[in-house]
Simulated assay, not measured.
Amino acid sequence: MSGLEPPVSIRSDAPTEAETRFLKLVGRLSIDVPFDVYAISVAPACGRGGGSGRLLADNLPEDYRRRYLEHRDFERDPVMLASRAGRLPVRTAEVRAVAEADPELMPCFAAAVAALGPAVLAIPLRFRNRLSGDVVFRRRGAEFSDAEVGYCELAAPALLLAATELPVAGPPDDLTPRERECLAWTSVGKTAWEIGSILGISEHTAVAHLNGAVRKLRAVSRAQAVAEALRRGLID
């Protein structure tokens, strides 16, 4: 719908066994509960996400996903704020109420509605009283029914578990030399404008290389991408 990827899409030409297993789970769920978009994230200080959390799997439109991560919209996303504040599934009305209570959240809310659809269902998952992650669904059709919410609530733990088994990142060769250079300069505090000046490229091009590295490393920010690249030995 509207240019969105199918809800069983993973960005891989040759899915691994873990990716195939995840795709089957998402595909089965989408038959019983139609949705256009899914996003699965691990909460801060849980799993591989470390202290800043991690987006594990999604089929968000690429341009929306890039803006969302680059602008750190996850810090002011009313869906995340509403979901992580409680234990019960969160639907559109609760998300809208959170956004309307703080004018600074409305741009993020409006952008998501326009790009992803108005109907939203977010399921917070907790383990031993601690938030372990979120599973979010959106669609352009009707609001999610009580039966659909219950079905998704049952399926969410399996989806999160399967998503945590997906590869954190591709092999080192997946990062281009320019992406590594830009990350390396970011690691010493350089801005995109400064990186562009150093490398003789435009600021826009530097941002594009950084965005590519963030996406490939499945990070939620440049800082997290730098940390992951350092951990993997992709940059010094």
Rank of each mutant, 00 (worst) to 15 (best):
R222D: 05
G117C: 10
A110E: 15
I195C: 00
Y64R: 09
V207Y: 02
L60R: 03
V37E: 02
G196P: 05
W193L: 13
E143M: 07
I201C: 07
D102M: 08
S12L: 03
E17F: 14
P124I: 08
R138C: 04
G170W: 05
P167Q: 11
E70N: 03
F109L: 11
S52Q: 12
A225Q: 01
D63Q: 13
V188H: 06
A119D: 08
P34A: 06
S52C: 07
A119H: 03
S2G: 01
A227N: 05
H209E: 12
L234Q: 03
V95M: 04
E62D: 14
R232W: 04
L230M: 11
G27Y: 06
L175H: 01
E148H: 12
D13F: 07
V135Q: 01
L166Q: 05
M1Q: 13
I10Y: 07
G51S: 13
T186P: 00
A39G: 10
A101T: 10
F35L: 03
L159I: 09
G170D: 14
R215A: 11
A158V: 07
E104K: 12
E94Y: 03
S145P: 12
R48V: 14
R21W: 04
G27A: 09
C152E: 03
A99K: 06
V188A: 05
V135D: 01
L69W: 00
C182M: 06
R138A: 10
E194S: 10
G50C: 09
A45S: 14
L23M: 15
R130K: 14
A39C: 10
D32M: 06
G50T: 08
R48G: 14
V8T: 15
A192I: 01
I31T: 14
M106V: 14
L210D: 00
D134R: 04
F74C: 01
V149E: 15
P167W: 10
K190Q: 13
K190R: 14
L23Q: 13
A213K: 03
L154T: 12
T186V: 03
L60H: 04
E143D: 15
P118E: 15
D146V: 11
L183T: 00
F74L: 08
S221F: 06
D174M: 09
A85C: 08
I195K: 00
T191N: 06
S197V: 04
A14L: 09
D63H: 11
R222K: 15
I235T: 01
G49L: 02
P177F: 08
G150N: 10
C46V: 08
V90A: 02
E62K: 05
I40R: 01
R91P: 02
H204C: 04
E94T: 15
M80H: 11
W193S: 15
L175N: 03
P171W: 06
L234C: 09
L230I: 13
W185Q: 09
M1R: 12
N129T: 13
L154I: 07
G53D: 00
F137R: 02
R232P: 02
Y38L: 07
D36Q: 04
G27M: 06
L183Q: 00
S197F: 01
P157N: 05
K190V: 02
R65V: 01
V8A: 11
L159N: 04
T20L: 13
E228W: 02
R84D: 10
E104N: 10
A114S: 14
H204E: 12
R76K: 14
R139T: 10
G170A: 13
